[in-house]
């Protein structure tokens, strides 16, 4: 698309979100949507990150705080369960880690290049909170 000439796009300063018709988009999950190539869902901001959140399902209580406070629609929740992280759209802000209430946290930030298994292997123990 970036190489298209002036005669190779639809007129008007406009874009389409989907290819073809969509019905009930408010109840259609992302994996079932016919996104157009112009929908930012098809793009990635993974290279914005220096650190990435890693999800450890062993400690997760599915409270969904991470889901609601994620600014980048990058917490994947299905059927009321936290499933994982969308690394194409996560910008590494770490809000999910901050709002995670479990002990130890179910989400922690690691260096972007860190292997996920390695991150999970080194997960901290439950913290004894003072007071």
């Amino acid at each position: 698309m970036i190489d298209n000439g002036w005669d190779e796009f639809e007129i008007g300063a406009m874009l389409r979100s989907f290819d073809g018709a969509v019905k009930d988009i408010a109840t259609t999950l992302q994996e079932d949507r016919p996104y157009s190539k112009n929908n930012s869902f098809t793009a990635s901001v993974a290279d914005w990150r220096i650190e990435k959140p890693v999800f450890n399902k062993d400690y997760c209580i599915d409270c969904q705080f991470c889901w609601i406070y994620c600014p980048d629609i990058s917490i994947i929740s299905r059927d009321k369960k936290m499933v994982g992280i969308d690394y194409d759209h996560c910008k590494g802000c770490a809000i999910c880690v901050e709002v995670c209430p479990t002990n130890p946290k179910s989400l922690l930030m690691f260096e972007e290049k860190m292997d996920e298994d390695e991150a999970l292997a080194g997960w901290p123990e439950k913290e004894n909170k003072e007071k």
């Binding site: 988009i25 408010a26 109840t27 259609t28 999950l29 992302q30 929908n39 930012s40 869902f41 098809t42 793009a43 990635s44 901001v45 914005w48 599915d62 409270c63 969904q64 705080f65 889901w67 609601i68 600014p71 980048d72 629609i73 990058s74 929740s77 299905r78 059927d79 009321k80 969308d86 194409d88 759209h89 996560c90 910008k91 590494g92 802000c93 770490a94 809000i95």
Partner: peptide, 20 residues
């Protein structure tokens, strides 16, 4: 919140807003 989390977002990622 659990029930709310079944919502299908109509605002997409890879927008250019600042992290956070």
């Amino acid at each position: 919140l659990k029930e709310f989390s079944t919502s299908a977002d109509r605002f997409e990622g890879a927008n250019l807003l600042c992290p956070g």
